[in-house]
Amino acid sequence: MSTQVKPEKKKPQEAAAEVQPKRKVGRPPKTDKIPRAAGPRGVKSEAARMTRLAAKRAGTSTRELIIASANEIINRTGVVDFRIETLAQSLSLSPGNITYHFPKKEDIIAAIWEEYVAIMRDTTEEMITPLLDIKQLFLYFRTAASKAINYVGVTTYYFGDMGALLRENETFRRQIERGRELIFSSYDTLVRNGYMKPIENPEIKELTFDSQMTMLRWWINHALTKYPEQDLPVVMDKYIALSLLQLIPYLTESGKRQFVNIVNLIK
């Protein structure tokens, strides 16, 4: 957390105004209170109405719409500052409409997480084919990374809050198990295709996997301490290339050539 969460210095008037009604303890003050200027509740803004109409026509349910726009908001604010009221406002729904589908904001967050997990499971594994080379491996990692960016608010939370880590421990262990199988088999394929020498020592092989996995999962957290969120797609390639660094000791000449090629291209 360090200085990251340090409350901003209050301006004198603000501080004075905040003295009496002690807020419910343990929660950050809602500095992002939405102005109620948009007329009384229930009066729908034209834009929001159109979005919902379009969604209806496309066959998107209210539930899906809630998940999609909650994800959008969380990608900007993070899970801690995310409020059902803000979400309701942005969809021109009443908070009751939302809580009908999701009683607590945690339920929305969990639904977004499940969507992310399903997407990762469905779309990426087919990319590891017998034709695998270093460039394809890079592309595979890259596809996974860009999917994670679409869910950045929720994934950083699930990868970084002890409560979430403990609750989802089983899911995570299954994911890592699957990741290990996938990566180990791609090492084998790369060996077969002449891009890599086998990693003889099983312990070093495991360490190599652990390192690649850690980089591929937490690069976003690291990137966000340095770059604004909208730069993630730009810096992504650098981190993905970093994850390949662990393979250098085992690359053959043609493997090295491809690696250098990638590095030169993303520079």
């Binding site: 990251q4 993070g78 801690v80 939370y157």
Partner: peptide, 23 residues
Amino acid sequence: VVVFRSADLGAMKRDQEAGRVNE
């Protein structure tokens, strides 16, 4: 505390400058 340090987008955004110096 350590695992959470970079887990919330809002917190990170509020303090990106300090995060960068730290880094």
